[in-house]
Design a protein around this nucleic acid. Structure first.
Lengths: 134, 134
DNA sequence: GTTACTGCAAAGTCTTTGCATGCGG
DNA sequence: CCGCATGCAAAGACTTTGCAGTAAC
């Protein structure tokens, strides 16, 4: 096989996603990668994202009708989403996953995985009782 | 105010969604409504869907990169999604929602609502434990 | 007579695809 | 050499928008 596998472009995309703490979109990744590789094409970014996703190096996040965002953490986890600023933070809900996975059986479903997203306001956007303003 | 509110078109869209057990997409709704109102425009369907959603009469579901589907049940509930045939069934997970809503506080989030989707195989696609290969 | 809804088509957003080029092995 | 990745642009899927006509109030 002559696959080049983790090519410089793909590597650049991967590094960009890992370096970002915000779960960047393809557009953000594109502009980032463009700095180091000015000639890179948009399609190459999508190509790389597809490849990285298929190879378990990043995971794709789809929330609402926005553009996909990419997450360097591929282990199963949940997300907190700020409905004001759009902040997206990784989160692990301390709930017995088995309950979730067994849950669907009542309806004849054999559940393989699940997705849980919590929406609300982050501390930046909704300074509660003791939080600083903005 | 001279709003006509629930117009015949909107009503037709609403009825179509309620009559369907499959959480139809805009395209499906469009073709259904078209039977009774041949001249209806696609934009009118989206218009109606938007209005119905904003007025709490249906809710929009976004899953993966597919077209939005519309749910006549507006009360909070979860969904089971068959990853083979795409079947989508309403579901209520018997878990204390307060736990979920309180969960984000650790990260400074004030969680307002959450979304939970369980993915797997429905009974049609994966008949019980001793499932045939298919 | 206003105002809101509709129909039509065009534009918009995000993503994918087709094809020619060219490096890497 | 040959396959695979890349660049480019065009196409594609779904949804939104602009505008003029029409119906409701």
């Amino acid at each position: 096989m002559k696959a080049r596998r983790l090519t410089p472009h793909r590597s650049a995309v991967l590094e960009t996603i890992r370096a970002s703490r915000t779960h960047p979109t393809a557009a953000e990744i594109y502009s980032q990668v463009r700095r180091r590789r000015p000639g890179v094409a948009y399609a190459t970014i999508y190509n790389a994202l597809d490849w990285l996703t298929r190879n378990g190096m990043v995971s794709e996040l789809r929330l609402g009708d926005e553009a996909s965002r990419y997450d360097p953490t591929t282990a199963r986890h949940d997300h907190l989403v700020c409905t004001r600023c759009g902040a997206l933070v990784d989160y692990e809900l301390p709930l017995p996953h088995r309950i979730l996975l067994q849950a669907g059986r009542r309806h004849g479903f054999r559940v393989q995985y699940y997705r849980l997203e919590l929406f609300g306001c982050c501390s930046q956007c909704a300074p509660d009782s003791a939080a600083p303003s903005r």
